[in-house]
Design a protein around this nucleic acid. Structure first.
Lengths: 223, 223
DNA sequence: TGACATTGGTGCCGAATTGTTACTAATTCG
DNA sequence: CGAATTAGTAACAATTCGGCACCAATGTCA
């Protein structure tokens, strides 16, 4: 028995995520008339010679005026769950877009992650996986920084972490850990939000960290 | 512009990993005559209605006498890198097989991860991603336990972690952290390895952990 | 048979990290 | 001006971590 390729139909399904004041939001597009569900994830087939993340950028650009800042594959599915275009195989991609960047086109809309309308089963699975992957990787890669503009306050950053992790963090501990990590540097700008003391703006500027890897962290197990 | 699926050729490429005494090993199969490289990853197209992990199990079973204990997708590629079967799209899957489980068939062989022969460019990329993913997730999911038989000594477990992380760990700290995590339970068996005190055998038996999530860990950033 | 080499397992201490409280600073609102 | 509000920090107690030293149980070998 020799291995051989097989022709299948392929779709790239994109979960565009962006922080709203009180929750993470997902960008959905209105389905064409006759579809089983009213809303769905933006999707399309990759063009010939087009990379998957490249396809995700193109697909997102068609419904949001700007391309996302970051992509992360969240898994490829070929099970029996129904896809709106009946693709055999779907590549799920999470796309992170900074707060307030871009405006959805007329047929697209932001929905809070916790309150989505009915989706095709495969899209539902992909959204759940995207949420899980983002939550799981948030302290291993700079996802949170991709959900913010180029400069941001430390309170902004903490809010994003709280959205992603769904729990409150302690201000002093958060800042102390951030300080020790050399991931941000202060700018000389300050932002006044109306009431309260103005906050200094920071930018993401990771510096080489001296080795010092810690021991095994069994306490991070998610199962 | 309406989204539409497109027909492409698809392959599942499997990186079977297993611990050897001194390094992680990858299972490679001899390429058919006429191929550019002598060795390659086991691969095939998924059958109709077959899930991707299911396909990975089938592909592995054809070259190792037992199916792997665990699968993890390491990314889907559609770039221009050459695939031995010229698939447009490859799904890379890491498959973990316990130490000493199964015998490779005649045309397959274990190679240490650090000393692989030349591979087709896409296979090379998939192997690198598999190694990176496994290293990155080792303290978030029970990967290490899938590289061991059902019962194992704590020294075995520590060795696997040391292989995966490529660094030595401190015995007392390792055991203290493991204790606190409630991931293993002792059996009443002991194993005598020849010289030295016999070691108690443990099994993987994760218990519900009381909440107690820690603060944000910026020190885990891998970038 | 009795040192001793070898591997498994634990107790403990000082150092580093973390969670928390409480404080100071700078601004708007009335 | 004082109260309210948000930003930022100091300091302390509790916990965790790395490392060392030690004890335990076995095989080896004189």
């Amino acid at each position: 028995m020799k291995p051989a390729v097989r022709r299948t139909t392929l779709a790239v399904d994109v979960v565009v995520l962006s922080p709203r004041p009180d929750a993470l939001a997902v960008l959905l597009v209105r389905s064409p008339a006759g579809a089983r569900e009213r809303w769905g994830l933006p999707w399309d087939a990759p063009q010939i010679g087009e990379g998957l993340e490249e396809a995700a950028a193109r697909i997102t650009s068609a419904v949001l005026s700007v391309p996302p800042a970051f992509f992360e594959q969240v898994g490829t599915l070929s099970d029996g769950r129904r896809h709106p275009g009946d693709a055999d195989v779907s590549v799920g991609i999470a796309a992170l877009s900074p707060a307030g960047a871009g405006m959805p086109t007329e047929d697209a809309e932001w929905f809070p992650l916790a309150g989505l309308p009915a989706l095709a089963p495969r899209h539902r699975t992909i959204v759940d996986r995207a949420a899980a992957v983002v939550r799981q990787r948030v302290d291993q890669s700079p996802l949170a920084f991709r959900l913010l503009p180029a400069t941001f306050t430390l309170s902004d950053l903490q809010s994003v972490y709280e959205l992603l992790l769904s729990r409150r963090l302690h201000k002093a501990s958060f800042r102390r850990a951030l300080q020790a990590s050399y991931l941000v540097e202060p700018t000389d700008e300050w932002r006044s939000e109306g009431r309260g003391r103005p906050a200094q703006l920071f930018r993401y500027a990771p510096k080489k960290r001296r080795g010092a890897r810690r021991g095994v962290r069994f306490d991070l197990f998610t199962e």
